[in-house]
């Protein structure tokens, strides 16, 4: 590769560094230092936040977390959001975008309508959903009543401590509510992205297919979806990463106990919720280290998934 030749290469280098400095300083202070510090903290046994004292360097906190049922529940719940809610919400967004793309009149109106959840406050929307699913006066139960179905205790956990079966039933109901909420809140951005991707496809491909007498289903499967794959993979990666950082939605739906009323097992906790809970206890020895260790695990999970997705996407994504 030919080297860039300048009259005064040194001067060029220095100027470039100068321009990069502000961004680099911000990165260093708010990303690189915290990252390194988090990793270090996670390995300090019984680290005390106020004094900075710790017993010794150890990976014991990692072992503790791995053995903590609450953390495992958090991993499971987070994975549920990432691998059940995200694909389902992508599917519904894709269908919505395909429908929107095939209409001419009112497309702008509907697109705006579908985008509204994006500009809605998460906590407020979550509270509305919690209200919708309220056992006594929620809209969902009212509507179920119309067709003769008894009220369902969607997010209230009366009696759940009595048996494992009751607990599991309550858990499934809460997962369902979380799924419905995720579908609704995730739709907006995905619809807009898919719609953009669809409109980027050269209409001539469809004209060729039309002349060839290709059926709609074949056009979708053999032309639209492959040509849309860059958008799909982008939406998937960003949605999964967002899903792994899920926190506020769960708090909005289930409160800061992460579970239905009457539950004290933090039934619906997420990884970020687990980290925040540990941080809330910052005065006790080791709490910060546990939060740090959980954060490092989260980082590793996200990095691993992103690498995997990028690797897989090279196989079946058709960039033009």
């Amino acid at each position: 590769m030919a080297r860039l030749r300048l009259k005064n290469p040194r001067r060029f280098d220095n100027t470039a560094y100068l321009y990069l400095l502000p961004a680099f300083l911000l990165l260093a202070v708010f990303t690189i230092y915290p990252l390194v510090n988090t990793i270090l903290t996670s390995a300090k046994l019984d680290y005390r936040f106020l004094t900075g004292a710790y017993v010794r360097v150890s990976l014991r906190h990692y072992a503790d977390i791995m053995a903590d049922a609450t953390f495992l529940r958090a991993v499971f719940n987070t994975a549920f959001i990432a691998f059940v809610c995200v694909p389902l919400s992508m599917l519904s967004a894709l269908v919505t975008a395909l429908l929107l793309n095939s209409i001419k009149k009112l497309r702008g109106f509907f697109t705006t309508l579908y985008y509204l959840p994006q500009v809605t406050n998460v906590i407020a929307a979550g509270m509305v959903f919690a209200f919708l699913f309220n056992s006594n006066f929620g809209l969902v139960n009212t509507m179920l009543g119309w067709i003769g179905i008894d009220p369902v205790a969607w997010i209230s956990g009366v009696n759940i401590a009595k048996s494992a079966a009751l607990y599991n039933q309550a858990y499934l109901r809460c997962l369902f509510v979380l799924l419905v909420y995720s579908l609704w809140s995730g739709l907006s951005m995905k619809v807009v992205l898919f719609l953009g991707g669809l409109q980027n496809i050269n209409p001539q491909y469809y004209q060729v297919a039309q002349i060839d007498g290709t059926s709609r289903w074949r056009v979708l499967r053999k032309i639209t979806l492959p040509l849309l794959s860059p958008t799909t993979i982008y939406v998937f990666i960003t949605s999964v990463i967002t899903a792994f950082k899920a926190y506020s939605a769960v708090v909005a739906l289930f409160g800061n106990t992460y579970g239905p009323i009457g539950d004290n097992s933090k039934m619906m906790i997420t990884i970020v919720g687990y980290i925040i809970d540990a941080l809330g206890d910052y005065l006790s020895a080791g709490a910060i280290s546990i939060a740090s260790a959980a954060a490092v695990i989260l980082l590793l999970i996200i990095m691993g998934l992103t690498a995997l997705q990028l690797k897989l996407s090279q196989k079946w994504v058709h960039y033009k």
């Binding site: 050269n202 001539q204 491909y205 004209q207 060729v208 039309q210 002349i211 060839d212 007498g213 033009k320």
Partner: peptide, 20 residues
């Protein structure tokens, strides 16, 4: 008649070959 029933072949200006 719709395009597919006419049985014509068409070559577009920028070829419109499916890239994938």
């Amino acid at each position: 008649l719709s395009p597919e029933k006419r049985g014509v072949g068409m070559v577009f200006q920028n070829y419109a070959l499916y890239p994938h």
